[in-house]
Lab assay of single mutants.
Amino acid sequence: MAAGGDHGSPDSYRSPLASRYASPEMCFVFSDRYKFRTWRQLWLWLAEAEQTLGLPITDEQIQEMKSNLENIDFKMAAEEEKRLRHDVMAHVHTFGHCCPKAAGIIHLGATSCYVGDNTDLIILRNALDLLLPKLARVISRLADFAKERASLPTLGFTHFQPAQLTTVGKRCCLWIQDLCMDLQNLKRVRDDLRFRGVKGTTGTQASFLQLFEGDDHKVEQLDKMVTEKAGFKRAFIITGQTYTRKVDIEVLSVLASLGASVHKICTDIRLLANLKEMEEPFEKQQIGSSAMPYKRNPMRSERCCSLARHLMTLVMDPLQTASVQWFERTLDDSANRRICLAEAFLTADTILNTLQNISEGLVVYPKVIERRIRQELPFMATENIIMAMVKAGGSRQDCHEKIRVLSQQAASVVKQEGGDNDLIERIQVDAYFSPIHSQLDHLLDPSSFTGRASQQVQRFLEEEVYPLLKPYESVMKVKAELCL
């Protein structure tokens, strides 16, 4: 049975990233139509530049190519590739079939990587351009969430054990800070992308030097003109047959890092959902379990974690691919890159769409948070109580021993009897502590235990987050809708 299948058929496997999760716009960027249309555009740009620099290419040939950029006979191309065992030459023939007058000058002087690699770089750039505003929107939604809850005390956790208090907004800023680093890295790697350009079979530009009869300047002009037509500021000066596969490492490393950030955020949300302090959106008709109707599973956060793990592992592909590119190139890269580049971007696209949807509907339960604080705060307040007693004339050592005994009794009630923490009640009825009984409410005010959390939130948002989001103001209103 021949390899390949009808990918629109229910009898043929289709990647869930495309069929179930990723956005239509990201799927289109990695589609065959987008790819092969870009090949034709690159052939047109090459012909236009070659004509401008004096090669015998007519206006009629150029116009014929322009008129057929979208006229792609995919069936013919597939048949040609089956016959020739070469995808680029299959599309040269297919393009030439609908451009008979231009057929002889299509791909003039070029090698397969002229269309293959340059198209990949265009796709990487455009895919990054799709991700950047999506990530900015996630940051914006979380920034709104953090600002609104900047002063809401909550129990902090280290080692997932109760620690000092923080605020809900401050905790959210930990998430935002990681995503801001990801946004900066995505922008950097996007701006650092260079075009492969017009380089020939081993990167020496020998074929173009021959076409222009040894004119170095025209060869350099050709490279520059096509690079500018493709919208790049610069091209690699040095290439082998391909652009260095280190570029793929750079791009997928940034995406993998984004995956790590999203995994951490969504894990926190899942843990908070278990504590009943916070939940992701839950639709009115949504079913959490087929057997347990009360369940409210954090399905979206779980999906993000599941896909983020996949995204983090994909960076190993370009690392290994770059390491086995012998001399000017081997074909070890080809099949692998067809999979890992598309999957990385479709996965990143999915987790950003999902995280935006989550961040637009996060639900906080202040009463649950308050109750958990009441359970733990008495123990945390013991040092403040000791200091207040010393100020009232008591002995630190005597007070410490009193607190120690009462704390152990209260802990026994919590752990052995399943009761509430009654340390404060014990202190309130103990005559030894009568000098500070009137101060206990103040000493137990949760806001006095959150330090500068709310001020940190305000400063972080104003100095770091809002300036970073400013270039994306025009796209901030787009909502994230999930079908599944």
Rank of each mutant, 00 (worst) to 15 (best):
R396M: 01
N71R: 10
L440G: 04
R37K: 13
I403F: 15
L209M: 07
V315M: 14
N297I: 04
L440M: 07
L155R: 02
R459G: 13
A273T: 13
D87G: 00
H86I: 02
S289K: 07
F208A: 00
T167N: 01
W39T: 08
N71A: 08
Y13Q: 09
Q177G: 13
K470I: 07
V324P: 03
R309M: 10
G451C: 05
V324D: 12
E401T: 07
K470L: 12
N421G: 05
T347A: 13
D182W: 01
A235V: 15
R83G: 14
D192I: 07
A146E: 00
Y114H: 01
E401F: 02
K134E: 13
L468A: 12
A342T: 14
H442I: 12
F379Y: 07
L444R: 02
F74G: 13
S434W: 09
P378I: 04
E328I: 05
A322Q: 13
R329W: 04
Y365V: 08
L461F: 06
F157R: 02
H263P: 04
E213M: 15
R426E: 05
L355T: 09
K246F: 04
Q409F: 08
A410R: 07
W43L: 06
L468W: 09
I339Y: 01
E213K: 15
S474D: 13
K415M: 09
E302A: 05
A22H: 09
T154R: 01
P56L: 13
V324Q: 06
Y13A: 13
R245G: 01
V247C: 11
C98F: 11
S289R: 05
L209V: 10
T202V: 07
P366V: 01
S67P: 07
D422N: 14
G231S: 12
A22P: 09
L311M: 13
D178G: 03
K391Y: 10
Q455M: 09
S253V: 09
D178Y: 07
E328G: 04
D398Q: 13
R309E: 05
D349H: 06
S434F: 09
I386F: 04
A47T: 01
K233A: 12
A163D: 00
L469W: 06
F327Q: 12
T354D: 05
Q325H: 10
M292S: 01
W175H: 00
T382D: 00
S67E: 13
A381R: 04
V262Q: 04
S112G: 04
R270S: 05
Y21A: 00
E280T: 04
V475R: 15
M225F: 08
P153H: 00
R196M: 15
F282H: 13
D317E: 05
Y365H: 10
I123S: 10
R374K: 12
D144Q: 14
T382G: 05
G104F: 08
D332M: 04
